[in-house]
Simulated assay, not measured.
Amino acid sequence: MASSFLTWFWNERFWLPHNTTWADLRNTEDAVFAQATDLWIMFPYSIVLYGIRILIERLIARPIGRKLQISDVPNRPPAPNAVLEKVFYSITKYPDGERLEGLCKQLDWREHQVLRWFRRKREIDRPSKLMKFSETVWRFMFYVTVFIYGLYTTFQTDCPTNTRSCWEGYPDRQHLKPLNYWYYQTELAFYTSCTISQFFDIKRKDFWIMFAHHIATIFLIMFSYSINMLNVGMLIMLLHDFSDVFLETSKIAKYTKQETFATIGLISFATSFVLARIVYFPFWILYSIWFDAFDVVGPFPSWYIFCVWLAILQFLHIYWCTFIVKGFIRLFKKGGQADDERSESEVSDSEEDVDVTRARTESQGDGPGINGVTLRKAHK
Rank of each mutant, 00 (worst) to 15 (best):
T260C: 07
D366G: 08
G365C: 08
E98F: 04
G150C: 09
A2I: 15
R164L: 04
M237N: 08
R360W: 11
T260H: 12
L151M: 15
L49D: 00
F142Q: 04
I70F: 00
G335E: 14
T157H: 02
D353G: 03
D206P: 00
P95F: 01
W117A: 00
E101D: 14
E111D: 07
S193R: 08
R119T: 08
D72Y: 05
D30Q: 15
F155C: 11
I312Y: 13
M234K: 10
I70K: 02
V296I: 15
F43M: 01
T217M: 14
I370Q: 09
A378C: 14
K132V: 08
E351N: 00
I124M: 10
F118M: 05
Q69R: 15
D158G: 07
K86I: 11
V146G: 01
F190Q: 02
F291H: 15
P301R: 03
M229W: 00
R126S: 14
V87G: 08
I312A: 12
V373C: 11
T249N: 07
K67P: 09
G97M: 09
T263M: 12
A189E: 00
Q106T: 01
L247P: 03
L103E: 06
P301M: 05
F200T: 07
D295V: 12
S4R: 12
S343I: 05
G51C: 15
P44W: 04
H317K: 02
S343W: 04
E346H: 14
S250P: 00
Y45G: 01
N75W: 13
K333F: 04
K177I: 07
N180W: 04
L176P: 11
